[in-house]
């Protein structure tokens, strides 16, 4: 069976195309599937994370997958980040070291994820960010990863991939899980029945958490939102049918016709950000509690 895909950008339409692809693939079993990329002229490399998640889920449904007819440009970008190696293609050397390779993690792999991020941020050609910015960037990624570990209940892993665009000082990084999504998490944990786009807004707003036991929560995504707002970057969140985006401080919230079976968080960092990210006043350890 041949499945044809189109250009994939890190935007609403790109996510929508991947969701449609997932729905085409989700009912298949014991099929030999050829993903034909002959019509793809642009594929944002970081979007390999949700693309890989969808293909992994399809493989787990006892299908075999071949990616074929890639144009030379697409072959290059998706080989440099190691994505195509999972589908039998050869890995290409990343001469300018602008990729953070595509990886799949289990929920127990928090330390592996940290080592993976650190490996790519130190001496790998990725932007020479200030120490304060790099630390904020790293912690944002760790918060998202751990958020997926704690909240998604994924049994099919967590997927990540990044790409640095030096000419525009942007670093895109995407983390995807195949878990229950924000809406179901909120419904199951606290019994609040809201739409998918409302669920994303709920999770990222200031006042609550789905934690109901003795461990409080609810800071990770808010810190991320604050940081990206200061940094002048962009956050996009896809979960179930919901889509939420904050770009240069402007927020868009809307829905897809079909649901994504999990959550995707895409971050676009402004790597030329020269803010110091220093605290306005000194905090004493005696003032914490």
């Amino acid at each position: 069976m041949n499945i044809y895909i189109q250009d994939i950008n890190s935007d609403y339409n790109g996510f929508n195309s991947l969701i449609n692809l997932e729905h085409q693939l989700s009912e298949l079993t014991f099929e030999e599937i050829y993903i034909d990329m002959s019509a793809v002229n642009w594929f944002d490399a970081n979007m390999a994370a949700p693309f890989g998640a969808i293909l992994y889920k399809t493989s787990r449904n006892s299908n075999s997958i071949t990616i074929c007819n890639t144009t030379s440009g697409i072959e290059k970008i998706l080989s440099k980040n190691n994505f195509l190696s999972y589908y039998g293609h050869s890995r290409k050397f990343d001469t300018y070291r602008t990729t953070i390779e595509y990886r799949r993690f289990e929920t127990k792999d928090s330390l592996d994820f940290v080592n993976y991020i650190k490996m790519y941020l130190v001496g790998k050609g990725l932007p020479d960010m200030s120490i304060g910015l790099r630390r904020k960037f790293e912690l944002s990624l760790y918060e998202i990863f751990e958020n997926a570990v704690v909240h998604s209940n994924t049994e099919l892993g967590i997927y990540s991939c990044g790409q640095y665009f030096p000419n525009i000082n942007r670093l895109d990084f995407t983390i995807t899980d195949l878990g229950i999504g924000f809406r179901r998490n909120i419904k199951e944990r606290i019994g609040l029945n809201i739409s998918s786009d409302q669920a994303i807004e709920w999770a990222i707003s200031e006042i609550h958490t789905t934690k109901t036991g003795s461990i409080p929560g609810g800071n990770g995504l808010k810190l991320l939102k604050e940081f990206i707002s200061l940094n002048g970057g962009c956050v996009q969140i896809v979960s179930d049918r919901g889509y939420w985006q904050m770009k240069y401080g402007n927020i868009i919230s809307k829905s897809f016709l079909l649901p994504f079976p999990g959550s995707i968080i895409n971050l676009e960092f402004n790597t030329a950000d020269s803010k110091k990210y220093q605290l306005s006043s000194e905090i004493s350890p005696n003032e914490i509690f």
Binding site: V114, E143, N147, S214, G217, G220
Partner: peptide, 14 residues
């Protein structure tokens, strides 16, 4: 050298 809120919520918040 690396500390995030998920850890602190469990260790101290609770």
């Amino acid at each position: 050298d690396t500390l995030i809120t998920a850890f602190l919520n469990a260790a101290i918040g609770q």
